[in-house]
């Protein structure tokens, strides 16, 4: 029994590593294709950086890119501002923890495309308000905020509350306690919440399909080009290779920050 269990567990663990590799195979292939002569053939070869050159010359992706960066930045700031106070209050909360968490996590239980549709239905169909950057920010915030809050909670739950009490006991006024003691302790969580807000918004697609209106974000642009078999696809490969590298670096920062706290 135990031997069979061990063998099965080892096999499944290998499958787990396999699936992790499966996540990256397309990304690596994408990177290879982006430096190939004919990316759309699906085969690397005739290596060239010319697509990167035409990417830097092309203009089509710049406006969506800047728009996505702006929206992601706003979502990140909103996430941090909205995640810090509840996360600070959480350890002191006596009642209502479960219902508070359930309220915040509830939208995660709805598929993204359905949530996008519902936000659209509520505002556009019911109230006649046109979609735009504001609704993108709103739907991205609803998507990213639970993650931001969780990453703040990981930190506040591991931070000793008596640190702030000790500072107060030593005579520090509340603002000083916040600046000198709490913020430095919370910094990994703040960075984590900001990164979650930024990156989840920056790559958000299913909600944006409905809440974007006339505004085109970078994922919407990529998706449109990819579905339309456009000639711009080669440039999308280059762009996304760069974005993937940046995402990996950001993920590394996030993991190091959160693991330093939880280790």
């Amino acid at each position: 029994m135990d031997a069979a269990f061990r063998a099965a567990a080892r096999l499944l663990l290998a499958a787990g590593f396999g699936i992790t590799a499966l996540i990256y195979a397309p990304v690596a292939w994408l990177a290879l294709l982006s430096v190939s002569a004919d990316p759309l053939s699906g085969w690397p070869g005739g290596f060239t950086t010319s697509w990167y050159a035409s990417l830097s010359a092309s203009l089509g992706w710049r406006a969506p890119m800047l728009r996505s960066l702006g929206i992601a930045g706003i979502v990140a700031i909103l996430c941090v501002l909205a995640a810090v106070p509840p996360a600070r209050a959480w350890p002191r909360m006596r009642r209502g923890r479960v219902s508070f968490a359930a309220l915040i996590l509830l939208p995660l239980g709805v598929p993204g495309i359905v949530l996008g549709l519902l936000v659209f239905t509520t505002w556009r169909v019911l109230f006649g308000v046109h979609m735009g950057a504001w609704s993108l920010v709103l739907s991205h915030f609803i998507w990213a905020y639970p993650f931001a809050l969780i990453s703040m909670l990981v930190v506040t739950l591991r931070t000793d509350p008596s640190l702030a009490e000790a500072a107060r006991d030593l005579g520090a006024p509340p603002l000083r306690v916040l600046c000198d003691i709490e913020l430095p302790a919370l910094m990994p969580g703040i960075v984590g919440a900001g990164l979650f807000g930024f990156l989840l918004s920056f790559t958000e697609l299913p909600r944006s399909i409905f809440t974007g209106g006339q505004v085109q974000t970078l994922p919407l642009y990529s998706f449109a080009q990819a579905s339309a078999h456009s000639s711009q696809i080669k440039l999308i490969f280059c762009l996304n290779t760069l974005i993937s590298l940046a995402s990996l670096a950001a993920a590394a920062v996030l993991v190091v920050l959160l693991r330093r706290r939880t280790a």
């Binding site: 397309p26 994408l30 790559t203 994922p219 999308i236 993937s244 950001a250």
Partner: peptide
């Protein structure tokens, strides 16, 4: 850990196209 964090942030369209 890093490999399992990054996919949250990868562009879905590009990855699927590849």
């Amino acid at each position: 850990w890093i490999c399992l964090t990054a996919p949250f942030f990868l562009d879905p369209a590009a990855r699927t196209l590849s």
